[in-house]
């Protein structure tokens, strides 16, 4: 079985499990929407004032929803020792990582699709000046965050404090990612505010490459007990 086939196998299984119950996906989407509404109430300010914090408000529900997903996504594996079943099988552990990464990303993508339009609707934001840049930032930024989240969650699978470990470890590691996505989102929403978008996009691509390629090749070694 080729590496790609293994990735597809893990992805199919995860999505089949998730879309059968839909409980995690619904929780993530509802959480993101409610959080957007909550932010709208808290920051009931004039459009000009909201510009200062708009990128943060756009990303916060998405990132927190993704966090919600990291712990719950793949819980079926932990409950019945199914991860052990994978570890004793001849599967390439890199394929396991990539399959789970893509599966998790699909869920976060659905959250973005539902949450971002609500941001513009509720917060009375003008249509983004650069829709292409905004989409690129959303797609690349969420990929990077999901990659590091899946990486840490799988690494910490055998720990009894996985739920605590991941949030503590993810934020320091994601600082470069946060800097890039906030800068790029600001430029996409208000082009007059910033410059040098190419540099930030390069940083984002570099970050994604590191946290996608390195775990893919190192997972066999890292999951060896």
């Amino acid at each position: 079985m080729t590496f790609i086939n293994q990735v597809v196998l893990i992805l199919n299984r995860d999505l089949r499990i998730e879309f059968r119950s839909k409980s995690l996906l619904l929780s993530m989407v509802i959480f993101a929407l409610l959080f957007q509404v909550f932010l709208q109430i808290v920051f009931d300010a004039k459009t000009q004032a909201i510009q200062m914090i708009a990128p943060g408000i756009l990303w916060l529900p998405v990132l927190l929803s993704a966090m919600l997903g990291f712990n719950k996504y793949g819980s079926a594996e932990r409950e019945n020792g199914a991860l052990t079943g994978l570890l004793v099988s001849p599967i390439d552990k890199g394929a396991l990582f990539l399959g789970k990464l893509i599966g998790n990303y699909v869920l976060v993508f659905i959250v973005i699709v539902t949450s971002v339009p609500i941001f513009f609707l509720f917060l009375k934001q003008p249509f983004p000046a650069s829709i292409g840049l905004l989409l690129t930032t959303l797609l690349l930024g969420s990929w990077g965050f999901v990659a590091i989240g899946v990486f840490l969650t799988t690494l910490a699978h055998s720990s009894s404090i996985t739920e605590l470990l991941v949030p503590i470890m993810i934020f320091p590691l994601a600082v470069p990612l946060f800097l890039a996505i906030i800068q790029l989102t600001e430029m996409a929403l208000f082009p007059s505010l910033g410059m040098g978008e190419n540099l930030w996009i390069l940083l984002l691509i570099g970050y994604n490459l590191i946290f996608t390629v390195a775990p893919t090749f190192l997972f066999d070694l890292l999951l060896e007990v």
């Binding site: 499990i17 079926a76 020792g81 199914a82 079943g85």
Partner: peptide, 29 residues
């Protein structure tokens, strides 16, 4: 690992999949 079959107290099964789907997954694995 390809030559080895394992029955441990943990079933390694996915409870929200059918028996057939579980076995098909492991067979492909």
């Amino acid at each position: 690992k390809k030559l080895l079959g394992i029955v441990f107290p943990e079933t390694f099964l996915y409870h929200s999949l059918t028996a057939y789907e579980n076995l098909r997954f492991y067979q492909k694995l």
